[in-house]
Write a protein that binds this DNA or RNA. Structure first.
Length: 365
DNA sequence: AAAACGGGGGC
DNA sequence: GCCCCAGTTTT
């Protein structure tokens, strides 16, 4: 029987697909990619003046974080800490306050650690070398490639989730893009075809296509894509199957009891451990497990307290869920221990409490 | 190779 | 409710 599906008819209208191997296909992206990027690049704050410091800060903020979320943080951060030396000298609490709400707080701590390193050992500047950049805390292969190419014009690739998606589609690769081995090979393949004089636009162009054309969720806008005629996934109708990603695992549930300790007009907070989840941020005193009201005094080591239950709350992290219950606890005297007793105003202005505690933070005047 | 590490936006 | 995001580090 004849095949007359819409897809078959459309395929007849396509220019005949050239027989290209992967390397030739990647090389063939260059001209359409650069032409398209010169015309369609979004105006973004960090693109105004791509000096190494500004590129570095933006790239760290953009790790696993959307452009729209980064914009206001970036502007404020650059305004407060305009250069490496200011960053190296900033107190950690003020730094974390600048980062509050962005997530992945290790990024901020690594930023400061690296700034100190740069002042002490690199003459206060980011090194103009992919290999040297990659040695710095918080800078992996993607970020090293991004800084090297965008700030210094060094022809090395910068393979992020966008590039993985775009290139796997263009080449028609059904390999699992979450595998490190697949990313490493793509980096090698792209390095071999990188234009010597246009590394910045080449990398940013690939990323830009991934962000606004070959989008991460929903169908790609192939009619706007400069790589459409080269794209194996599109030509073979594999857009829905590529990129391949392995399914992710379930989140662990953790029960937590949060206590708002109130004494003489002040609330107790404490600093979290400097490693692990929400490292170095502040929190309301809490314990793992769901405590009953009558268990509270003993846990706090007090004879008496006026206790009232607070609403339950849930916070979802990427790998764990906190299921929280809470109690309001009025004490006659301060507790011994590493607590800071702060007013509501002081709390909001000077201390970074992660969003996980929002349900309880908002109860404080 | 897998897990840890946030928070927000899209559907 | 699930997926994903201009990833890196630790286990």
């Amino acid at each position: 029987m004849d095949s007359h599906s819409l897809y078959d008819k459309l395929q007849v209208l396509e220019p005949r697909e050239k027989e290209l191997d992967t390397k030739e296909r990647l090389k063939a992206m260059e001209r359409p990619l650069l032409t398209w990027y010169s015309k369609h690049a979004r105006a973004l704050p960090w693109r105004d003046r791509p000096d190494p410091y500004r590129v570095w800060i933006s790239e760290i903020m953009l790790q696993q974080t959307r452009v729209e979320a980064v914009k206001p943080y970036y502007e404020r951060f650059i305004g407060d800490l305009p250069g490496i030396r200011e960053l190296a000298a900033v107190p950690e609490d003020r730094l974390l306050k600048l980062w509050e709400g962005l997530g992945y707080y290790t990024r901020a701590k690594n930023l400061k650690k690296t700034a100190e390193l740069l002042v002490e050992q690199y003459g206060g500047e980011l090194p103009a070398s992919y290999e040297e950049l990659k040695k710095l805390p918080g800078i992996g292969s993607y970020t090293a490639g991004a800084i090297a190419s965008i700030a210094y014009g060094i022809p090395v690739p910068a393979v992020d989730g966008n590039v993985l998606r775009v290139v796997s589609r263009v080449t028609g690769s059904r390999e699992d893009i979450l595998k490190q081995s697949v990313k490493t090979r793509m980096e090698e393949e792209l390095k071999a075809v990188m234009p010597e004089e246009a590394a910045s636009s080449y990398n940013q162009g690939l990323i830009e296509i991934g962000a606004i054309v070959c989008v991460p969720n929903g169908p790609p806008l192939c009619s706007q894509c400069p790589l459409a005629s080269l794209c194996v996934a599109r030509i073979k109708g594999l857009i829905g199957e590529i990129p391949v990603k392995t399914p992710k695992k379930n989140r662990k549930i953790v029960d937590i009891t949060v206590m708002l300790l109130w004494q003489n007009g002040r609330i107790a907070i404490r600093k979290r451990e400097d490693t692990g989840l929400l490292a170095s941020l502040y929190e309301f005193p809490n314990v793992e497990g769901h405590l009953k009201e009558e268990e509270i005094p003993a846990r706090l080591g007090v004879e008496e307290a006026v206790i009232a239950p607070l609403p339950a709350a849930k916070h979802v992290f990427s790998h764990v869920e906190w299921h929280m219950t809470g109690f309001w606890v009025e004490l006659e005297e301060p507790l011994h221990g590493d607590y800071l007793w702060v007013t509501g105003t002081d709390l909001k202005k000077n201390y970074s409490l992660p969003g996980a505690f929002k349900a309880y933070t908002k109860l404080i005047r």
